[in-house]
Amino acid sequence: MKQNTIERNTVRMVLVITMIIAVFPFIFMMIIALKPPGESVTGLNSLYVMNPTLNNFVRVNQIIPLARNAINSMVVSSVGALTTVFFCALAGFAFAKYTFPGKELMFIIMIATMMVPEETSVIPVFIIVRQLGWINNLLSLIVPKIATAIGIFYMRQYITTFPYSIMEQARIDGCSEFRIFWNMVLPNITPALAAWGSISFIVRWNELLWPLLFMRSRVMYTLTVAISLLPTAEGLSTPWQVIMAGAAVSVVPLVIIYFLLQRFQIAGLMTGSLKG
Protein backbone atom coordinates (compact mmCIF):
# COMPACT_ATOMS: atom_id res chain seq x y z
CA MET A 1 0.00 0.00 0.00
CA LYS A 2 3.05 2.26 -0.09
CA GLN A 3 2.42 3.28 -3.68
CA ASN A 4 -1.07 4.26 -2.64
CA THR A 5 0.18 6.69 0.03
CA ILE A 6 2.59 8.35 -2.36
CA GLU A 7 -0.21 8.71 -4.88
CA ARG A 8 -2.55 10.28 -2.35
CA ASN A 9 0.03 12.72 -1.07
CA THR A 10 0.90 13.78 -4.60
CA VAL A 11 -2.76 14.43 -5.33
CA ARG A 12 -3.16 16.43 -2.12
CA MET A 13 -0.10 18.51 -2.88
CA VAL A 14 -1.22 19.24 -6.43
CA LEU A 15 -4.62 20.35 -5.19
CA VAL A 16 -3.16 22.61 -2.50
CA ILE A 17 -0.86 24.28 -5.06
CA THR A 18 -3.81 24.68 -7.44
CA MET A 19 -5.87 26.36 -4.71
CA ILE A 20 -3.02 28.76 -3.96
CA ILE A 21 -2.61 29.66 -7.64
CA ALA A 22 -6.36 30.12 -8.01
CA VAL A 23 -6.79 32.36 -4.97
CA PHE A 24 -3.50 34.26 -4.94
CA PRO A 25 -4.37 36.94 -7.53
CA PHE A 26 -7.47 37.87 -5.51
CA ILE A 27 -5.47 38.33 -2.32
CA PHE A 28 -2.75 40.18 -4.18
CA MET A 29 -5.33 42.52 -5.70
CA MET A 30 -6.86 43.28 -2.28
CA ILE A 31 -3.46 43.91 -0.68
CA ILE A 32 -2.46 46.45 -3.33
CA ALA A 33 -5.91 48.05 -3.30
CA LEU A 34 -5.58 48.66 0.46
CA LYS A 35 -2.05 50.11 0.31
CA PRO A 36 -1.55 53.77 1.23
CA PRO A 37 0.47 55.85 -1.31
CA GLY A 38 3.56 55.85 0.92
CA GLU A 39 3.97 52.06 0.92
CA SER A 40 6.01 50.42 -1.80
CA VAL A 41 4.23 48.09 -4.21
CA THR A 42 7.44 46.71 -5.70
CA GLY A 43 8.27 43.02 -5.63
CA LEU A 44 8.03 41.36 -2.23
CA ASN A 45 6.62 44.55 -0.71
CA SER A 46 3.46 43.80 -2.65
CA LEU A 47 2.75 40.78 -0.46
CA TYR A 48 1.71 42.62 2.70
CA VAL A 49 0.08 45.85 3.78
CA MET A 50 1.12 47.75 6.92
CA ASN A 51 -1.51 50.49 7.18
CA PRO A 52 -4.57 49.50 5.17
CA THR A 53 -6.56 52.41 3.79
CA LEU A 54 -9.74 52.81 1.76
CA ASN A 55 -8.35 55.93 0.12
CA ASN A 56 -7.69 54.21 -3.19
CA PHE A 57 -11.39 53.45 -3.55
CA VAL A 58 -12.16 57.13 -2.97
CA ARG A 59 -9.69 57.99 -5.70
CA VAL A 60 -11.26 55.50 -8.11
CA ASN A 61 -14.56 57.21 -7.38
CA GLN A 62 -13.01 60.56 -8.35
CA ILE A 63 -11.71 59.22 -11.67
CA ILE A 64 -14.81 57.30 -12.76
CA PRO A 65 -18.50 57.70 -11.74
CA LEU A 66 -18.23 54.57 -9.67
CA ALA A 67 -21.73 54.37 -8.20
CA ARG A 68 -23.34 55.04 -11.55
CA ASN A 69 -21.19 52.44 -13.33
CA ALA A 70 -21.98 49.91 -10.61
CA ILE A 71 -25.72 50.56 -10.97
CA ASN A 72 -25.44 50.07 -14.74
CA SER A 73 -23.69 46.74 -14.24
CA MET A 74 -26.25 45.70 -11.64
CA VAL A 75 -29.24 46.60 -13.85
CA VAL A 76 -27.82 44.97 -16.98
CA SER A 77 -26.78 41.79 -15.18
CA SER A 78 -29.84 41.24 -13.02
CA VAL A 79 -32.53 42.25 -15.53
CA GLY A 80 -30.57 40.40 -18.18
CA ALA A 81 -30.29 37.23 -16.13
CA LEU A 82 -33.98 37.21 -15.14
CA THR A 83 -35.30 37.79 -18.65
CA THR A 84 -32.83 35.34 -20.18
CA VAL A 85 -33.87 32.59 -17.82
CA PHE A 86 -37.55 33.20 -18.52
CA PHE A 87 -37.35 33.33 -22.31
CA CYS A 88 -34.88 30.46 -22.61
CA ALA A 89 -37.03 28.25 -20.40
CA LEU A 90 -40.15 29.20 -22.37
CA ALA A 91 -38.59 28.30 -25.73
CA GLY A 92 -36.87 25.27 -24.23
CA PHE A 93 -40.27 24.10 -22.98
CA ALA A 94 -41.72 24.44 -26.48
CA PHE A 95 -38.91 22.38 -28.00
CA ALA A 96 -39.02 19.75 -25.26
CA LYS A 97 -42.75 19.11 -24.96
CA TYR A 98 -44.52 19.90 -28.23
CA THR A 99 -44.45 18.74 -31.80
CA PHE A 100 -45.14 21.33 -34.44
CA PRO A 101 -44.34 21.85 -38.12
CA GLY A 102 -40.83 23.22 -38.67
CA LYS A 103 -39.58 22.13 -35.27
CA GLU A 104 -36.60 20.18 -36.48
CA LEU A 105 -35.54 22.89 -38.95
CA MET A 106 -35.78 25.58 -36.26
CA PHE A 107 -33.73 23.49 -33.88
CA ILE A 108 -31.01 22.93 -36.46
CA ILE A 109 -30.90 26.67 -37.25
CA MET A 110 -30.58 27.34 -33.54
CA ILE A 111 -27.67 24.96 -33.05
CA ALA A 112 -25.97 26.19 -36.21
CA THR A 113 -26.04 29.79 -34.96
CA MET A 114 -24.30 28.70 -31.78
CA MET A 115 -21.24 28.14 -33.95
CA VAL A 116 -21.17 31.58 -35.60
CA PRO A 117 -19.19 34.06 -33.51
CA GLU A 118 -21.18 37.21 -32.77
CA GLU A 119 -18.13 39.29 -33.70
CA THR A 120 -18.69 38.41 -37.37
CA SER A 121 -21.75 40.62 -37.55
CA VAL A 122 -20.81 43.17 -34.92
CA ILE A 123 -20.79 46.06 -37.40
CA PRO A 124 -24.36 45.62 -38.69
CA VAL A 125 -25.50 44.98 -35.12
CA PHE A 126 -23.95 48.29 -34.13
CA ILE A 127 -25.79 50.06 -36.97
CA ILE A 128 -29.10 48.41 -36.02
CA VAL A 129 -28.65 49.36 -32.37
CA ARG A 130 -27.92 52.93 -33.45
CA GLN A 131 -31.06 52.95 -35.64
CA LEU A 132 -33.10 51.77 -32.67
CA GLY A 133 -31.73 54.70 -30.67
CA TRP A 134 -30.18 52.31 -28.16
CA ILE A 135 -26.68 53.80 -28.10
CA ASN A 136 -26.06 54.90 -24.51
CA ASN A 137 -29.13 52.94 -23.51
CA LEU A 138 -28.83 49.86 -21.31
CA LEU A 139 -31.51 48.14 -23.42
CA SER A 140 -28.84 47.46 -26.03
CA LEU A 141 -26.96 45.32 -23.51
CA ILE A 142 -30.05 43.46 -22.31
CA VAL A 143 -32.43 42.82 -25.20
CA PRO A 144 -30.28 41.28 -27.97
CA LYS A 145 -29.14 38.44 -25.72
CA ILE A 146 -32.44 37.82 -23.96
CA ALA A 147 -32.93 34.43 -25.61
CA THR A 148 -29.78 32.62 -26.61
CA ALA A 149 -29.57 29.37 -28.52
CA ILE A 150 -27.31 27.78 -25.95
CA GLY A 151 -29.66 28.71 -23.09
CA ILE A 152 -32.67 27.26 -24.90
CA PHE A 153 -30.70 24.12 -25.65
CA TYR A 154 -29.93 23.49 -21.97
CA MET A 155 -33.40 24.37 -20.74
CA ARG A 156 -34.84 21.94 -23.27
CA GLN A 157 -32.58 19.17 -21.96
CA TYR A 158 -33.70 19.87 -18.44
CA ILE A 159 -37.41 20.08 -19.20
CA THR A 160 -37.46 16.91 -21.33
CA THR A 161 -37.89 14.74 -18.22
CA PHE A 162 -41.01 16.63 -17.09
CA PRO A 163 -43.85 14.05 -17.27
CA TYR A 164 -46.52 14.41 -19.98
CA SER A 165 -49.14 12.93 -17.67
CA ILE A 166 -49.05 15.98 -15.42
CA MET A 167 -49.49 18.23 -18.45
CA GLU A 168 -52.46 16.15 -19.65
CA GLN A 169 -54.09 16.28 -16.23
CA ALA A 170 -53.63 20.06 -16.13
CA ARG A 171 -55.24 20.42 -19.56
CA ILE A 172 -58.24 18.41 -18.42
CA ASP A 173 -58.49 20.76 -15.45
CA GLY A 174 -58.63 23.63 -17.93
CA CYS A 175 -55.11 25.02 -17.66
CA SER A 176 -53.77 26.97 -20.62
CA GLU A 177 -50.40 25.95 -22.04
CA PHE A 178 -48.76 29.03 -20.55
CA ARG A 179 -50.29 28.26 -17.15
CA ILE A 180 -48.78 24.78 -17.35
CA PHE A 181 -45.40 26.39 -18.01
CA TRP A 182 -45.74 29.04 -15.32
CA ASN A 183 -47.35 27.00 -12.54
CA MET A 184 -45.90 23.55 -13.10
CA VAL A 185 -42.79 23.52 -15.24
CA LEU A 186 -41.00 26.57 -13.83
CA PRO A 187 -41.27 25.55 -10.14
CA ASN A 188 -39.90 22.14 -11.07
CA ILE A 189 -36.77 23.37 -12.81
CA THR A 190 -35.50 25.88 -10.24
CA PRO A 191 -31.99 24.33 -10.11
CA ALA A 192 -31.63 24.89 -13.86
CA LEU A 193 -33.04 28.42 -13.55
CA ALA A 194 -30.64 29.27 -10.74
CA ALA A 195 -27.65 27.81 -12.55
CA TRP A 196 -28.40 29.45 -15.86
CA GLY A 197 -29.35 32.71 -14.16
CA SER A 198 -26.10 32.97 -12.25
CA ILE A 199 -24.02 32.16 -15.33
CA SER A 200 -25.88 34.80 -17.38
CA PHE A 201 -25.36 37.28 -14.57
CA ILE A 202 -21.61 36.69 -14.50
CA VAL A 203 -21.26 36.74 -18.28
CA ARG A 204 -23.12 40.04 -18.58
CA TRP A 205 -21.26 41.59 -15.66
CA ASN A 206 -17.92 40.67 -17.24
CA GLU A 207 -18.78 41.50 -20.86
CA LEU A 208 -16.39 43.98 -22.46
CA LEU A 209 -16.90 44.27 -26.23
CA TRP A 210 -20.60 45.15 -26.39
CA PRO A 211 -20.70 47.79 -23.65
CA LEU A 212 -17.49 49.24 -25.07
CA LEU A 213 -19.26 49.68 -28.41
CA PHE A 214 -22.75 50.66 -27.34
CA MET A 215 -22.05 52.88 -24.32
CA ARG A 216 -20.51 56.11 -25.49
CA SER A 217 -20.37 58.20 -22.32
CA ARG A 218 -18.62 57.73 -19.00
CA VAL A 219 -21.80 57.66 -16.94
CA MET A 220 -23.26 54.88 -19.09
CA TYR A 221 -20.25 52.56 -18.89
CA THR A 222 -20.53 49.30 -17.02
CA LEU A 223 -17.93 48.68 -14.31
CA THR A 224 -15.96 46.34 -16.54
CA VAL A 225 -15.56 48.99 -19.25
CA ALA A 226 -14.87 51.73 -16.71
CA ILE A 227 -11.99 49.89 -15.07
CA SER A 228 -10.52 48.88 -18.42
CA LEU A 229 -10.15 52.60 -19.16
CA LEU A 230 -8.51 53.60 -15.85
CA PRO A 231 -5.41 55.71 -16.54
CA THR A 232 -2.26 53.61 -16.65
CA ALA A 233 0.15 56.46 -16.00
CA GLU A 234 0.25 59.31 -13.56
CA GLY A 235 3.28 61.33 -14.54
CA LEU A 236 6.07 58.79 -14.61
CA SER A 237 4.60 56.12 -12.37
CA THR A 238 1.66 53.75 -12.68
CA PRO A 239 -1.04 54.21 -9.99
CA TRP A 240 -1.20 50.49 -9.23
CA GLN A 241 -3.12 50.97 -5.98
CA VAL A 242 -5.90 52.80 -7.81
CA ILE A 243 -6.01 50.28 -10.65
CA MET A 244 -6.22 47.37 -8.21
CA ALA A 245 -8.92 49.17 -6.23
CA GLY A 246 -10.91 49.53 -9.45
CA ALA A 247 -10.47 45.86 -10.28
CA ALA A 248 -11.51 44.93 -6.73
CA VAL A 249 -14.71 46.97 -6.98
CA SER A 250 -15.71 45.03 -10.06
CA VAL A 251 -14.80 41.66 -8.58
CA VAL A 252 -16.09 41.79 -5.01
CA PRO A 253 -19.84 41.81 -5.82
CA LEU A 254 -19.41 38.69 -7.95
CA VAL A 255 -17.39 36.91 -5.28
CA ILE A 256 -20.09 37.69 -2.71
CA ILE A 257 -22.81 36.35 -5.01
CA TYR A 258 -20.69 33.30 -5.71
CA PHE A 259 -20.26 32.45 -2.06
CA LEU A 260 -23.95 33.02 -1.42
CA LEU A 261 -24.85 30.55 -4.14
CA GLN A 262 -21.93 28.34 -3.10
CA ARG A 263 -21.91 25.99 -6.01
CA PHE A 264 -22.65 26.07 -9.67
CA GLN A 265 -24.72 23.22 -10.93
CA ILE A 266 -24.27 24.49 -14.44
CA ALA A 267 -21.59 21.97 -15.31
CA GLY A 268 -23.77 19.08 -14.21
CA LEU A 269 -26.50 20.50 -16.36
CA MET A 270 -24.13 20.74 -19.26
CA THR A 271 -22.81 17.20 -19.04
CA GLY A 272 -26.36 15.99 -18.56
CA SER A 273 -27.27 17.50 -21.88
CA LEU A 274 -24.18 16.07 -23.53
CA LYS A 275 -25.13 12.59 -22.56
CA GLY A 276 -28.73 13.18 -23.63
Binding site: M19, F28, N206, T224, L230, A247, L254, Y258, Q262
Partner: peptide
Protein backbone atom coordinates in the same frame (compact mmCIF):
# COMPACT_ATOMS: atom_id res chain seq x y z
CA UNK B 1 -15.21 26.42 -4.31
CA UNK B 2 -11.67 27.78 -4.14
CA UNK B 3 -10.40 26.41 -7.43
CA UNK B 4 -13.44 27.71 -9.33
CA UNK B 5 -12.84 31.32 -8.21
CA UNK B 6 -10.78 32.47 -11.22
CA UNK B 7 -13.76 31.90 -13.49
CA UNK B 8 -15.83 34.47 -11.55
CA UNK B 9 -13.49 37.37 -12.23
CA UNK B 10 -13.78 39.29 -15.51
CA UNK B 11 -11.05 39.09 -18.12
CA UNK B 12 -10.48 42.80 -17.60
CA UNK B 13 -10.01 42.64 -13.83
CA UNK B 14 -7.83 39.54 -14.11
CA UNK B 15 -5.77 41.20 -16.83
CA UNK B 16 -5.17 44.24 -14.61
CA UNK B 17 -3.83 42.00 -11.86
CA UNK B 18 -1.67 40.09 -14.32
CA UNK B 19 -0.42 43.36 -15.77
CA UNK B 20 0.99 44.22 -12.38
CA UNK B 21 2.35 40.71 -11.70
Amino acid sequence: TMTFLPYIISWVAAALVFRML
